[in-house]
């Protein structure tokens, strides 16, 4: 079983990002479970969501305490909260950032990759320039970097889950997929 945790801020589409992964993986015939950590929902407040993926029916229904991998939709969360809490050694940390992975030396022992999902979202006019919705772009990059899910399934899931601007969201996911650099094996 793969357990993935999403960190973002209210308004960025973090919960939908976790659903995009689940919907995409389910399209490929696997079992999924996805849920947010519900609190008081406010724009800008830290948001956590979880997705489980398995080849068989998933029975465990607690939160994910020791995720295999992380997605960080807002780099300002790094340092503000302990995003790597419980993260298994060697797990991916995929960060929405315009900086290269080597600028995150604090994550030694994990595999770090970055994607400038904010710029891609702004370019495709997703959300506003001040508060872009970055979920579609980061999920395109996630598909490329991890190979856990195909881009076709991600495109379909983004299309299904985008309430507005469906084509623009799909294009953002595709652009992130096309441009994301897969880091060389890190130790």
């Amino acid at each position: 079983m793969l357990e993935i945790r999403f960190h973002g801020r209210g308004g960025q589409g973090t919960v939908v990002a976790s659903k995009v992964l689940a919907f995409a993986v389910a399209r490929e015939g696997r079992f999924v479970q996805t849920f947010p950590e519900y609190g008081v929902e406010r724009r800008g407040a830290p948001v956590v969501a979880f997705t489980r993926i398995d080849d068989q029916k998933i029975y465990i229904r607690s939160k994910i305490y020791e995720p295999d991998h992380l997605l960080v939709l807002d780099p300002t969360l790094i340092g503000a909260i302990d995003v790597t809490e419980g993260l298994k050694p060697g797990g991916w940390i995929i960060i929405n950032s315009d900086k290269p992975a080597k600028d995150f030396p604090q994550f030694a022992g994990f595999k770090v990759a970055t994607v400038d999902a904010t710029s891609i979202a702004v370019k495709h006019r997703l959300g506003s320039a001040a508060a872009p919705i970055v979920n579609s772009a980061i999920m395109g990059a996630f598909a490329k970097i991890t190979g856990f899910v195909g881009i076709e399934a991600v495109r379909e899931a983004v299309h299904e889950l985008s309430p507005v601007k469906k084509d623009e969201n799909v294009e953002a996911a595709q652009e992130a997929y096309d441009t994301a650099e897969v880091p060389k094996e890190q130790s």
């Binding site: 999924v32 996805t34 519900y38 998933i58 229904r61």
Partner: peptide, 10 residues
């Protein structure tokens, strides 16, 4: 609530 009501699965 939440654990089933707001959880998405197959």
């Amino acid at each position: 609530s939440f654990v089933l009501s707001h959880t998405n699965e197959n």
